[in-house]
């Protein structure tokens, strides 16, 4: 492989790469949103949200998860394959362990 070829390919790659990445300012903005969401989460401990509490916490958790994975882990800018890996693993875990816990519950109700 010639050096010039390497350089050219590399330049293209870096361009494609760097062009999509958020700037530090955007990262800080995302972190600020995350901080606000966390504050909201913690507030459920101090204020009574009634029956909305648990669904609210789950929604906030999912939003934070997607934000960190999408922006900080670059899933939004990278190849879809990486995201597929991650969500396959996550999906497998959720389905298998939910089923396992359900078996315990179903059994207990007899």
């Amino acid at each position: 492989m010639s050096t010039s070829g390497t350089q050219a390919a590399d330049a293209v790659e870096h361009e494609a790469h760097g062009g999509h990445h958020p700037t530090p300012t955007e990262y800080v903005r995302i972190a600020l949103i995350l901080a606000v969401l966390t504050a909201l989460e913690v507030s459920t401990y101090y204020f009574d949200f009634g029956r909305a509490g648990i669904p609210l916490l789950i929604i906030l958790m999912v939003i934070k998860f997607i934000m960190v994975a999408g922006s900080f882990m670059h899933l939004r800018y990278d190849t879809k394959l990486f995201g597929r890996f991650m969500y396959t693993g996550l999906g497998f875990a959720i389905v298998l362990y939910t089923a396992t816990l359900l078996i315990f519950v179903v059994d207990a109700n007899q």
């Binding site: 497998f92 298998l96 089923a99 359900l102 078996i103 179903v106 059994d107 109700n109 007899q110």
Partner: peptide
Amino acid sequence: FGVWAHHMFTSAIGPVP
């Protein structure tokens, strides 16, 4: 991945599982 409990048919799992 979805058949593991067939090793446990004689363990404490209910009829639905």
